[in-house]
Amino acid sequence: MKPVSTSIPRHVAIVMDGNGRWANKRFMPRFVGHKQGVDALMRTVKACADRGIEYVTVFAFSSENWKRPEEEVSGLMGLVLVAVSKYLAKLASEGVRIRIVGDREAVSSQVRAAWDETERRTEHNERITLSVAFNYGGRWDVVQACRRAIEAGVPAHELTEARLSEFMALSHAPDPDLFIRTGGEVRISNFLLWQVAYSELHFTDCLWPDFGDAELDAAIATFAARDRRFGGVKTALAPLMADTRSAA
């Protein structure tokens, strides 16, 4: 793979962390923080589109989040339906294509129907693709991809990295160039384990509901300053290496 020299990432992945803590700091129910987090997502998608970013993938609900209090989980499921009814028309009119990635089996038929409608109404949009990872886990993704490859009859000797990638939940998008996590935690938390192998990582203490243009631009600036070699070396080093080999 050739080195990439661009100041704007093509694909940004975001762990939207800190909604509950944002609410707790204001002595509000955690659910209020999640509602504010949806507003922050809408702002961020628009800001990414304005900057020429083609893909945004967000971690909305992990396969581990079912361990949270039942009231909070129920509220998050209801928030999905509210968000669809409140924002779908606006996102569709602004050229946003929405894809849902994750295991759909555990959610209600009502939520699945809302997702289907969302994907159908935005399927022809091309300005930016928003992938929402819901009931998603990176390890689950690898396992389900292997199962789908086996079911498709892919012979073992043909199962390359590129071939397996075709069965991953995010096969419709290139691997993320930039991975952002808000909320002060410094870990990937089982998000896009396969896809972020060469992503540039950016961690910020900003709680997700407070995330805005300034934080996004800071992350992009961090990305632009990185030297992405994908395991290779700088071309400028080649003559020096050749001289060293000659001397030996």
Rank of each mutant, 00 (worst) to 15 (best):
L41R: 01
A23V: 06
M28N: 03
V38W: 02
Q36T: 06
R30V: 01
P29M: 00
G20H: 11
K46C: 12
N19H: 12
K25Q: 15
N19I: 05
W22D: 07
P29V: 00
F31W: 08
L41N: 03
T44P: 13
R30W: 04
K46E: 15
Q36E: 15
P29R: 01
M42E: 12
R26A: 03
F31Q: 11
K46F: 08
M42A: 14
H34G: 01
P29G: 00
F31R: 05
P29Q: 04
V32L: 04
G33N: 00
V38H: 03
D39P: 12
T44M: 08
M42S: 12
F27L: 08
H34A: 00
R30G: 01
G37F: 11
H34Y: 10
G33H: 02
A40T: 09
N19K: 11
G18A: 06
T44N: 05
F27E: 07
W22C: 02
A23F: 07
K46R: 15
R43H: 14
M16R: 13
D39Q: 13
G18D: 06
G33A: 04
R26H: 06
A23I: 10
D17Y: 09
P29T: 02
K25I: 04
Q36I: 00
M42I: 14
V32F: 03
M16G: 12
G33S: 03
V45N: 10
R21N: 07
V38T: 10
K25M: 10
R26I: 04
T44H: 11
G18K: 07
F27C: 00
G18Q: 06
K25S: 07
M42N: 12
A23T: 11
G18I: 11
F27G: 01
G20P: 14
G33E: 01
D39A: 15
F31M: 13
M42V: 15
V32I: 12
A40E: 08
D39N: 15
W22L: 03
T44K: 11
H34R: 02
D39W: 07
N19C: 13
R26C: 06
G33M: 02
R21P: 10
V38A: 09
N19F: 07
G18M: 10
V45A: 11
G20K: 07
Q36M: 10
H34D: 06
F27V: 08
K46L: 14
V38R: 03
M16K: 15
V45K: 09
A23K: 04
T44S: 11
W22M: 05
L41P: 06
K46G: 12
V45I: 14
M42Q: 11
F31N: 07
V32Q: 10
W22I: 02
F27Y: 09
M16L: 11
